[in-house]
């Protein structure tokens, strides 16, 4: 697959933040040598999952060009985002990549009617020459999320339910007919009885509107439900990625295994094994500054080399794992921990 066939191509991207004062301070590598790509013709839902502080949100800011990588490149439709400089080019880019944020009640100002945002977006992106034509564009976007202009016009955010307003937020993202939607924890603030309608919506967008979705979440259960592929992040690295059934049904990386095991299953049958004791890190920063594999301090299969050198990416069937257990010389050990 050449670069031209890729909608999004993230190549060895690293983001470093300097924390601390003028003298001293330390370097925090929020995203560390991350690569992945999305196919141009085959829309898909790609999940980036990980715990807080794993670099998910920094990565999403990179993809929205809100942040520039310290090293590496992000190509969108074959073009390096670093070369998108002037306003009109940036507008073209924004038209194609749209975000959906976590808390819909923060996305919209409580003092402004929600339909105003939809019209603004339509006019700003020149999807319509005037307000009247814009109404058609807005109506169309709302229909795609199962709402109508009648239901939302002249309504303030507090007059809509959490599920409805999050759908308006998705509709707003759809107005410019994007190719990629970046959804950062879009359901974590939505009530349980309304959550699945938002999740199902992303599936529908992929199938009917042919929009690719990058779904950023810490919730592995919804990730399993909607995504095609998944990348598990730990302290800036994608440590395991591949088709979601492979990664979550039979996780290979010890961290993915721990993560999957820790998700409480909504059934009382696994209570005993779930209550088995686990070790937790005491402080936050230690793992970032650790040399070698970031999981070495908690890993049950840790080896000498893990603490010294970053593990390489190893291809195991359809997925990539960043772990020494699966490198060639460690084959027997790997076989031993297959779940």
């Amino acid at each position: 697959m050449s670069a031209a066939d890729k909608l999004l191509d993230v190549q060895h991207v690293t983001v470093e933040f300097h924390i601390g004062g003028l003298v001293g301070g330390s370097l925090l590598v929020a995203v560390n040598d991350v690569s992945f790509s999305l196919d141009m013709d085959q829309p898909e839902i790609f999940t980036l999952a990980g715990e807080s502080g794993s670099g998910k949100t920094t990565l999403s800011r990179l993809l929205l060009r809100d942040l520039e990588p310290t090293r590496g490149k992000v190509l969108f439709e074959g073009r390096d985002l670093a070369t998108v400089r002037n306003r009109s080019e940036f507008k073209e880019f924004m038209k194609k990549v749209q975000p959906v944020f976590q808390n819909p009640f923060e996305t919209f100002s409580p003092l402004r009617r929600v339909d105003a945002y939809l019209f603004d977006t339509a006019l700003n992106f020149e999807m319509a020459p005037d307000h009247q034509t814009a109404a058609r564009v807005v109506e169309e976007a709302l229909r795609n999320v199962g709402l109508s202009l009648e239901e939302v016009s002249n309504r303030y955010p507090h007059e809509l339910s959490g599920g409805q307003i999050q759908r308006v937020s998705v509709a707003r993202a759809l107005i410019s007919q994007p190719k990629l939607i970046l959804a950062d924890e879009p359901v974590s603030m939505v009530d349980a009885s309304l959550r699945m309608e938002i999740v199902n919506l992303f599936r529908k967008l992929r199938d009917e509107q042919r929009v690719s979705v990058i779904y950023i979440t810490h919730d592995l259960a919804t990730a399993y439900y909607i995504s095609d592929r998944i990348g598990i992040m730990l302290r800036g690295f994608i440590i395991e990625s591949g088709p979601v059934e492979d990664v979550l049904d039979r996780p290979l990386h010890p961290y993915t295994q721990l993560l999957k095991e820790s998700v409480p299953e909504p059934a009382p049958k696994e209570r005993e094994s779930w209550a088995k004791h686990i070790s937790l890190g005491t402080t936050e920063v230690k793992e970032y500054s650790r040399a070698g594999c970031k999981f070495a301090g908690r890993c049950p299969h840790v080896m000498e080399i893990c603490r010294v050198v970053d593990p390489p990416d190893v291809q195991v069937e359809r997925r990539t794992v960043k772990c020494y257990l699966y490198t060639e010389h460690a084959e027997p050990a790997a076989a031993g921990i297959q779940p």
């Binding site: 009885s193 259960a221 919804t222 979550l248 299953e265 909504p266």
Partner: peptide, 9 residues
């Protein structure tokens, strides 16, 4: 509530 919960697997 129970039936709408997504589960891994």
């Amino acid at each position: 509530l129970i039936h709408s919960l997504p589960m891994i697997g």
